[in-house]
């Protein structure tokens, strides 16, 4: 090999090496840009919520019901109270079923049964939320001859069950088997061990899971459209249509009235603050201790 050939080869190698380095750098830059692009919409949406909504979040917003369509003023007091009632009812219905189901999976069932129920829960979690509205319309609204608080709460509870079931089971499986064995050795009844030792040890994690589920369903609109239906007046009764914050935001956003658009932004700002607050408390709970 002559020296000329060798140096030519080296030059080529160097050239190729530089090209590979460049490509690597370019791809890294692309990854950084992607991450930035992913976060960008969050920044925009929060910016606009504050810009458009903050000025309309006032005392009236929290204390008054909607004004007549088109006329200015009024607030979303009934929607906030309605959302609180719907979420409380849904949690009361859905969380115990989810937690008990998870207890069965982690403490009693065979691995095969646990795996299949887990799979069913995963399938349920993937069902579009509008479908739950359709189901509850058929199962609750039609037999009761009308939209109602109860129907809305059932729709949200159905969404909660698989969420809570999955998170709770994961937490229960983290409780060391030694605790159960030690208690069994003391002659304590199996169900008392589960309730007083396993669940109590995992209680923080269970609460976290329930809070996460509440945060997930608190912004849900689709399953409430033809169950809770919405209401421009006060109602907290179980058998009448009830207002909910996400529903009200939707109704106002697609309405032709300027003042309602303003209130939709305010409602959205309040809703997102609530959801972030819930998520923040979850983070606080999980940071404090592992379980």
């Amino acid at each position: 090999m002559t020296t000329v050939e060798a140096s030519g080869r080296r030059l080529e190698d160097q050239h190729q090496h530089r090209w590979r380095r460049f490509k690597s750098g370019a791809m890294s830059a692309l990854a950084v840009l992607s991450a930035a692009a992913v976060i960008l919409p969050l920044g925009f949406v929060l910016f606009h919520l504050l810009l458009q909504g903050a000025s309309s979040v006032n005392v009236d917003f929290f204390t008054r019901t909607p004004a007549a369509p088109g006329s200015p003023g009024g607030g979303m007091a009934n929607a906030i109270a309605g959302s609180a009632e719907l979420l409380a009812l849904a949690t009361a219905l859905g969380a115990p079923i989810g937690v008990l189901g998870a207890i069965y999976l982690s403490e009693y069932s065979s691995p095969a049964v646990a795996a299949s129920i887990r799979f069913v829960a995963d399938v349920l979690n993937g069902v579009p939320s509008i479908i739950w509205g359709v189901l509850v319309f058929g199962v609750v609204v039609v037999p009761m001859h009308g939209f109602s608080t109860l129907a809305g709460a059932v729709a949200l509870a159905i969404m909660m069950i698989p969420l809570v079931l999955r998170t709770t089971e994961e937490v229960l499986l983290l409780v060391p088997g030694g605790y159960r064995e030690a208690a069994l050795a003391l002659g304590i009844a199996r169900w008392k061990i589960v309730v007083h030792i396993v669940v109590r040890t995992a209680s923080r994690g269970i609460v976290t899971g329930v809070l996460l589920a509440v945060a997930r369903i608190s912004g849900e609109t689709a399953p409430l459209l033809f169950t809770a239906f919405g209401n421009l007046n006060w109602n907290l009764g179980l058998t009448q249509p009830i207002a909910a914050l996400p529903l009200q935001i939707y109704t106002y956003a697609v309405s032709p009235y300027e003042d309602w658009h303003r209130q939709a932004w305010a409602g959205a700002l309040v809703l997102i603050s609530l959801i972030f607050l819930l998520n923040l408390s979850v983070r606080f709970l999980t940071r404090a201790k592992r379980l």
């Binding site: 008990l100 189901g101 129920i117 069950i161 698989p162 003391l186 009844a189 008392k192």
Partner: peptide, 29 residues
């Protein structure tokens, strides 16, 4: 944990069935 009384055989069975019923709710839905 209340351990004084002799464990009733019903407690376990009842609790287990309640938990089973809850787990089956997912399938029923």
């Amino acid at each position: 944990i209340p351990v004084g009384k002799a464990a009733s055989p019903w407690g376990n069975a009842t609790f287990r069935s309640v938990a089973l019923a809850a787990a089956l709710v997912a399938v029923a839905i």
